[in-house]
Design a protein around this nucleic acid. Structure first.
Length: 347
DNA sequence: AACTGTTTAGCAAAGT
DNA sequence: ACTTTGCTAAACAGTT
């Protein structure tokens, strides 16, 4: 999954219609924030104190993705996303109610963000938010500034079994690729295998990884709050030693791979039994299932199949396998009928 | 009460 | 002109 930053000349509207919405609010206009669209090589990076108190030329989706990407667990609670943004962009230390509302709206509205419930024994407010693994191609040319497409999800209750199995296979492949990436920090050719875009293989100097990695190495110990272990997340010390992407923990820490078509249960990160999610004879990996329909990176063919009637699943929570309902999970509009969602990219 | 999450609505700018 | 995308406001419900 690659995200690149690009100058606002890409077409992103910055701070648009703010004055129109509320002209009484004295806020920096887009022109003020970016008097001259910086070229790619002058594109400021979202480091600490970047943009001073001016509004950064990033959409909320971008900012949120940056925050999530910056975290070791690749997942953050809402409050940590707030922190990340406020920590790096002083502009967002004011009018918090306004932009935080917008940000929450984005989290809910955009399929590229998936919600990962907390463990039952780790109380806290809100869930964790992660990026859908297939959203790396969401932005134009990998840019964080403007998505090139929005994901629409079509219900595919009548999805052919072959399609469903292809989707399961796709998820399996993704898991493997992700694992290999985590293990050696060596990205396989073509990124995580999500690289439907040729840009995925190119690590742009303004890619989030590049930016963040650079900042991680900055002297003075720029310890983001987001880099701290997330309480209540799924801290993992998987077979690889270090912490893994908690949201995807069961994929790597247990015999997830083997559960595909294998035994019914396997042990999760906390020794909890992980039951493959089987519906209608289909066996899908026990991965965090997006509450919302899953987006796709624009790959051809079936990209992601999720179990629609498990709208909110915790990867290691027994509740997630014993009960398909969660407090935050709206009731299935179709009842308990197992169904599979096939997400497609809509241009 | 405060926070979190969902949803609807309207507007503006960019893209097609 | 129409569509898409992003921003903002607001209402509401659920959770802590």
């Amino acid at each position: 999954m690659f995200f690149h930053f690009r100058g606002p000349q890409s077409g992103l509207r910055v701070a648009q219609n703010q004055s129109a919405v509320d002209p009484t609010k004295a806020r920096p206009s887009a022109e003020h924030a970016c008097p001259r669209p910086p070229s790619a090589h002058t594109m400021p990076r979202p480091g600490r104190n970047t943009y001073s108190d001016q509004k950064p030329p990033y959409s909320y989706i971008s900012l949120t993705a940056m925050a999530i990407q910056s975290s070791q667990e690749k997942m953050l609670p809402l409050s940590e996303i707030y922190k990340f943004i406020m920590d790096r962009f002083p502009y967002y230390r004011e009018n918090t109610q306004r932009w935080q509302n917008s940000l929450r709206h984005n989290l809910s509205f955009n399929d590229c963000f998936i919600k990962i419930p907390r463990r039952p024994d780790q109380p806290g407010k809100g869930s964790f938010w992660a990026l859908h693994p297939s959203c790396g191609d969401m932005f134009e040319n990998g840019s964080f500034l403007r998505r090139r497409k929005r994901f629409k999800v079509l219900r595919a209750d009548a999805l052919a079994p072959s399609k469903a199995s292809e989707a399961a296979h796709y998820l399996q492949q993704q898991a493997k690729l992700r694992l290999s990436a985590l293990q050696g920090a060596h990205l396989p050719p073509g990124g995580y295998g999500l690289g439907s875009s040729p840009t995925s293989t190119f690590k742009h100097p303004f890619a989030i990884e590049s930016i963040i990695a650079r900042e991680y190495k900055m002297p003075g110990g720029l310890a983001f709050s987001t880099m701290q272990p997330v309480p209540g997340a799924y801290p993992l010390s998987g077979p690889l030693g270090g912490p893994l992407g908690a949201g995807w923990a069961p994929m790597y820490s247990s015999g997830m791979m083997d559960t595909l078509g294998g035994s019914e249960y396997s042990m999760g990160a906390y020794g909890m039994p992980l039951k493959p999610l089987c519906h209608g004879g289909q066996t899908l990996p026990a991965i965090p299932v997006p509450i919302k329909p899953s987006p796709t990176s624009g790959l051809s063919g079936p990209i992601t199949a999720i179990l629609h009637n498990s709208s909110s699943l915790s990867p290691t929570s027994p509740q997630s396998v014993s009960s398909q309902s969660s407090p935050s999970a709206p009731s299935d509009p179709l009842g308990s009928q197992p169904s599979i969602l096939l997400s497609v990219a809509v241009h």
